[in-house]
Design a protein around this nucleic acid. Structure first.
Length: 472
RNA sequence: GCCGCUAUCGUCUAGGGGCCUAGGACACAGCCCUCUCAAGGCUGGAACACGGGUUCGAAUCCCGUUAGCGGUACCA
């Protein structure tokens, strides 16, 4: 078998959609699995909607996800001459013909067809022009597009994910391959490029299934072997409709902003519509590549479940060493205007298992660094009310007890002993001592163990916050 | 309308004729651990769309129905 060559071919007309990212991921995985080549081709032939900014966003998104390409980015817009020449070759060979129908005429035909309830299919009238009629139109200098003569008969292929898919040539019409301005239509550009770039496997979205018979017709017209097609299912929103802005975050960049780790995103995306078989959920890159196969791709569309993504992100957050999280956390903190010269590593370690996103991590660190002033969250307030006077009283006692520990002795082990001793001596439940301290330090009732929290916040700051909370 | 694709817990999925009284994960509920929360452990509820075949035997194979989705451009 020839060396695998695959491509991801987005059009830069919007942001990098998670569906596109997953298509890219599958291509990448397949290339890495087979030792093939993965190339990136930007399909910017739609000049109206394509922008450089969008191209950059796509490039950034792929880089963020760690999806690396071996060739490209290639810009389809640069291959116009070849596209045109290919169309003209087909024309010269009689496999395509000039169509002089105007847009208005076509629209009228379409409207008429819809009225009678039938499907509009170009009737091929310009393909039946006599040599004289053709010559006449040419002499009058009428603009024309070029249409492919669609052969009758079956057009079928063995899709790597769906199995055999079959269309009938007579259900398809003689579609335009070159516009009257000499620019190519998508299907021509794709086939021309895929042939030129020696693409062996076309892995793309399900929505291209209906383009495939047209493209196969083109391969046949060019007398080139067609590649293997693998059509991956769509990604849906939680209402079962195609994922769109309406559903909230759909762009890869949105998840980056939300504090999702690229590794978690990639892992999640890989498992959306693909399964290695068995029970695997967390897949390191090497295993993902090792296990990847086109056969493992699901036929049906998948609903994008943000909750599971966040769970997975939490798994990565817990498992990753603090220094792997340092850079993004620092970025987030500086975005919030939080400045510190403290070593963030212990802070990250303290909060990462309790976080689902990097934004959570940064938020919790900020509280440990700066406190929340006298602001308490709802649970903090509730606890204070429940305890009544004991809240302040216990805090004062804790303050007195903890003050006896000097900076040298301010360690998790000593702090735990000190607090347990206090609780025992006073005949109080440990929680009635610990929880007020937690509220004093964080404003809430959730954190790492209090003795650790005290060391993370630091001696002076902790004592100050305890005193402040006791006084109010 | 026409063409095509798809159909297992709410969601992601395992399953490719007997191993299935259908397994795992997320979410949910309960319990354990425990100074709280997370993590972790245990337990529970929760699905083979429907109808016909084929077969000794179907979640698995075939046909139909229904539903959902995609396409139906001188867009990509």
């Amino acid at each position: 078998m020839a060396t695998v060559r695959v491509r991801f071919a987005p059009s830069p007309t919007g942001y990098l959609h998670v569906g596109g990212a997953r298509t890219a991921l599958f291509n990448w995985l397949f290339a890495r699995r087979t030792g093939g080549t993965f190339l990136l081709r930007i399909e910017d032939t739609d000049k109206e909607r394509s922008t450089e900014a969008h191209t950059q966003v796509i490039l950034d998104g792929l880089e963020w996800l760690g999806i690396t390409y071996d060739e490209g980015p290639l810009f389809q817009g640069g291959f116009g001459a070849r596209h045109k020449a290919d169309a003209e070759r087909l024309l010269a060979e009689g496999q395509a013909y000039r169509c002089f129908c105007t847009r208005e005429e076509l629209d009228a035909q379409r409207a008429a067809a819809e009225k009678t309830g039938g499907a509009f299919r170009y009737d091929g009238r310009c393909g039946r022009l006599s040599p004289k009629e053709l010559q006449d139109r040419m002499e009058r200098g009428l603009p024309f597009s070029i249409r492919l003569r669609m052969p009758d008969g079956e057009i079928a292929w063995d899709d790597a994910v769906h199995g055999r898919i079959s269309f009938q040539g007579h259900d398809l019409d003689d579609f335009i391959i070159l516009r009257s301005d000499g620019t190519p239509i998508y299907n021509l550009a794709v086939v021309s490029d895929d042939i030129e770039m020696r693409i062996t496997h076309v892995i793309r979205g399900d929505d291209h299934i209906s383009n495939t018979p047209k493209q196969i017709a083109l391969y046949r017209a060019f007398r080139k072997p067609e590649p293997i097609f693998a059509h991956v299912p769509m990604i849906l929103g939680n209402d079962g409709k195609k994922l769109s802005k309406r559903h909230g975050a759909t762009a890869v960049g949105d998840y980056q902003k939300l504090g999702i780790l690229p590794l978690a995103m990639r892992n999640f995306l890989a498992l959306l519509g693909w399964s290695p078989g068995g029970d695997r959920e967390i897949l390191p890159e090497a295993e993902m590549i090792q296990l990847f196969s086109l056969e493992g791709i699901q036929k049906k569309p998948a609903v994008f479940d943000v909750t599971k993504l966040e769970w997975m992100n939490g798994q990565y957050l817990s498992a990753l060493p603090a220094d792997a999280l340092l850079a993004p956390v620092q970025r987030l903190l500086s975005q919030k205007g939080t400045k510190t010269d403290r070593d963030l590593l212990p802070l990250i370690d303290a909060v990462k298992t309790r976080s689902r996103t990097l934004t959570d991590v940064a938020g919790q660190i900020e509280i440990r660094l700066n406190g929340r002033g006298s602001v308490m969250d709802a649970k903090g307030v509730a606890l204070k009310q429940k305890l009544g006077p004991a809240f302040s009283h216990n805090l004062r006692q804790a303050h007195t007890a903890l003050s006896t520990l000097g900076p040298e002795d301010w360690t998790p082990a000593n702090l735990e002993v000190e607090l347990k001793t206090l609780a025992e001596k006073e005949g109080k439940k440990l929680g009635d001592i610990m929880q007020p301290i937690r509220v004093a330090l964080t404003g809430g009732t959730v954190s790492e163990p209090v003795n650790e929290l005290l060391t993370v916040v630091g001696r002076e700051e902790s004592l100050a916050r305890i005193l402040a909370a006791a006084g109010t």
